[in-house]
Amino acid sequence: MRLLPCGAHALLVELDSAAAVQAVHATLRAAGLPEVLDLVPAARTVLVEVRPGAGLAGVRAVLETLDEREPPALGRDVLLPVVYDGPDLDLVARTAGLSTAEVVELHTGAAYTVAFCGFAPGFGYLTGLPEALRQPRLDSPRERVPAGSVGLAGEYTGAYPRASPGGWRLIGRTAATLFDVDRDPPALLAPGDRVRFQAQSR
């Protein structure tokens, strides 16, 4: 863990893994420090913003007690229904040396955590993808990925909240509304949420 000042009222915590990021984020959220205004997890960092004048001593003290093996369980349980008919399902199966049915079984059998959000409003990067399904992005990204597309890339899986360019391997689609400006909160997924995928027929 590396702690870097980030302006006058923030600290950037650099970490070695997505699991460590989740542990730091969950531990600081659970601590409920009144001076903390915002926590922003990313792939290998957590940005901690505090009230002007509050100082960072409390944040540092909490980080000294961090136990990455047993972080607090925070967030909600979210079930996403998926029709597994994505254009890259066969490619993922061939690359993994599996049948398409085995890909679906592995993807739906795993428990995921929203590590962080980004790329587009409502896009959650989910960790927990089985090792057998971890594959690189497409060599040539698509100019338009339909909203609701469920894909995977590297150690992450996730669903596109709106139509956009993208290079993830698409294995299915969900009808869930992942981002709605008229909903409170607008994003269905938030860091720390626990996610499962459920296979549905067409």
Rank of each mutant, 00 (worst) to 15 (best):
A147L: 09
R44N: 11
V114I: 12
T108C: 15
R76S: 10
S164Y: 04
A199K: 09
T113Y: 03
L178W: 02
F179L: 08
A153T: 12
G154N: 13
A175P: 05
F123P: 12
G122Q: 11
L33W: 10
P186C: 04
A57C: 02
E102M: 12
A110E: 06
V195Y: 13
P81N: 07
D139W: 00
H9F: 10
V59T: 10
L11H: 12
L79F: 04
P71I: 08
H9A: 15
A120V: 14
L33E: 11
A26C: 08
V46F: 09
G109H: 11
S201C: 04
D38W: 06
E35M: 09
R142A: 01
A57S: 15
L152K: 10
F123N: 07
P191G: 13
L189T: 06
P130M: 06
D77V: 10
R69T: 14
A10P: 06
L39K: 11
V82K: 11
R51D: 08
Y84N: 06
P121E: 11
P52I: 10
D182R: 15
R142K: 01
P5Q: 04
P87S: 06
I171Q: 09
T95A: 15
V36F: 07
A111P: 00
A111D: 15
Y125M: 08
D85E: 15
L79Y: 04
A110F: 04
R2V: 07
E49H: 05
E35T: 12
L28H: 02
L106G: 07
G75Y: 14
L188M: 05
P72I: 00
T113P: 00
G86Q: 06
L28N: 01
F179G: 07
P87F: 02
L11R: 10
F119V: 13
L80G: 10
D184Y: 01
R76A: 14
D193C: 05
E49F: 02
G55K: 09
L3I: 10
P146Q: 04
R183P: 00
M1T: 14
P34M: 10
Y160D: 06
G158L: 07
P185E: 05
L63I: 07
A199Y: 04
L56K: 11
D38Q: 15
L15E: 00
A176N: 02
L89V: 12
A19D: 13
E105H: 14
G172Q: 03
A23E: 01
L152G: 12
Y156F: 15
G154V: 11
G109F: 05
V50S: 05
D67A: 00
E14D: 14
G32F: 01
R196A: 11
A110S: 09
E70M: 02
E102N: 02
G55V: 12
L126I: 04
P34D: 11
